[in-house]
Design a protein around this nucleic acid. Structure first.
Lengths: 225, 225
DNA sequence: TTTACCTGTTAAAATTGGTAAAAATGCGGT
DNA sequence: ACCGCATTTTTACCAATTTTAACAGGTAAA
């Protein structure tokens, strides 16, 4: 069995030590970086399966490191942040973080999220077709079936659903969704989103009043499950 | 049976000696540190089940050591403080201390608190569900039942109740609660707390006028029992 | 007693998310 | 160009929740 490689970018010695031990003993190969700069370098050389990035780095803004990584690195990046720092987290998600954890975190939770993120990596690979509960989506044919019968979706509705499905389980901020679907310059038109989430829900949810697929994350955005 | 490990961080030789003997003879494995620096190092290397930290350290401010530990260490930390130094204790609780003891303390009390803190460690792991008197809480489903019937709580109410339950028996300072629920930057908005404690009490207390669950600790904060 | 402070209560104001429908837009067919 | 149609954008409104503000009671110090 080949181990998955995890790159940890954190300036605090204790955390590096702690996580190195934890992750190694759970059969991951661990690479350590003390700074954002070093992290970017090591990511390029080792192409890890997952990156753990502490947002509170001293040398560069962690968000900058995240942005730079995301220009070419498309595997999972989990962000570590101190205590409920909402704005940091929202910004990180906007910048392409896969998930986040607030310190101090429980080891079990960390491992669970790592597993989930790596699993998603593999799924994410090329495939024009995917099934999802009672939904089947064909990305190339631009069609969606629910329990076998074709749903009639407008292009915007389809794009939105596709975006949700590509980011299954992730919290997508309003801004992020608006940027992806309507382009930059429409990041404040949250009303569009409310309308289209409404129509999508009517079409894909079994019970429109207690949605199981498109979950609203109050104050932040939506999550597709 | 594997012994639980306790890390003692204290600069006074007599106390180290005394506690080492006391704890060893009660079947704990004891690690000693003379300074905050050494303590943090040893904590990282041995990941003890509990830390006893003397707040009155000479090299660094004990509160600083506590804060640093709490960025990654999530097991119990019991703080030792000379006499009833109220502000020290409140600050320590704010910084994430699990419990506190004032010197001089009785051995029986020390042992009792250590047992309780370690027991809570274990509880804190794995469990998405817990029962509490006539209340049953499902953390993942975000639901609360009182005597079997579901209570309708808003997200903020639920988060507050969850925080209380996770810290059952502990005194939570206003600041701490505000930081946890509303995030840093809202630590002076104690009015939020009064309002939400009010609505929570209305929903969970049997007798709203003499609350049994959410107890006011005047001048300090609240305690959930 | 007066004063200050802490806590709790209540209700109004502001914010957020959701719904429905009207108005505007864009596009193929004639 | 014009019409009809589907779709998107805009507008108005509702409901739930959070935040703000005003006030009332109790307690301890001055």
């Amino acid at each position: 069995m080949n181990k998955e490689t995890i790159l940890l970018i954190d300036d605090e010695q204790q955390i590096r030590k702690l996580l190195e031990i934890t992750l190694s003993s759970n059969n991951y190969k661990v690479i350590l970086a003390e700074s954002g700069k070093e992290g970017i370098l090591l990511a390029a050389n080792h192409s890890p399966d997952l990156i753990l990035l502490d947002i509170g780095l001293p040398d560069v803004n962690g968000q900058e490191v995240l942005k730079q990584l995301r220009t070419w690195f498309n595997k999972a990046i989990i962000v570590l942040s101190v205590q409920n720092n909402e704005t940091d987290i929202v910004t990180a998600l906007d910048n392409g973080a896969t998930d986040y954890l607030t310190k101090p975190f429980r080891t079990a939770e960390l491992l669970a999220r790592i597993r989930s993120a790596i699993r998603k990596n593999q799924h994410e690979n090329h495939k024009s077709c995917t099934e999802f509960g009672n939904l089947q989506i064909d990305f190339t044919a631009h069609t969606v079936k629910k329990n076998g019968e074709i749903l009639k979706l407008t292009t915007t509705e389809f794009n939105l659903l596709a975006l949700f499905i590509k980011n299954e389980g992730r919290v997508l901020t309003h801004q992020f969704i608006l940027k992806e679907i309507w382009g930059v310059g429409h990041q404040t038109d949250t009303q569009y989103l409310r309308v289209f989430v409404g129509t999508l829900r009517k079409k894909i949810e079994d019970n429109y009043n207690s949605p199981k697929h498109i979950i609203t994350e109050s104050g932040v955005g939506y999550r597709f499950t």
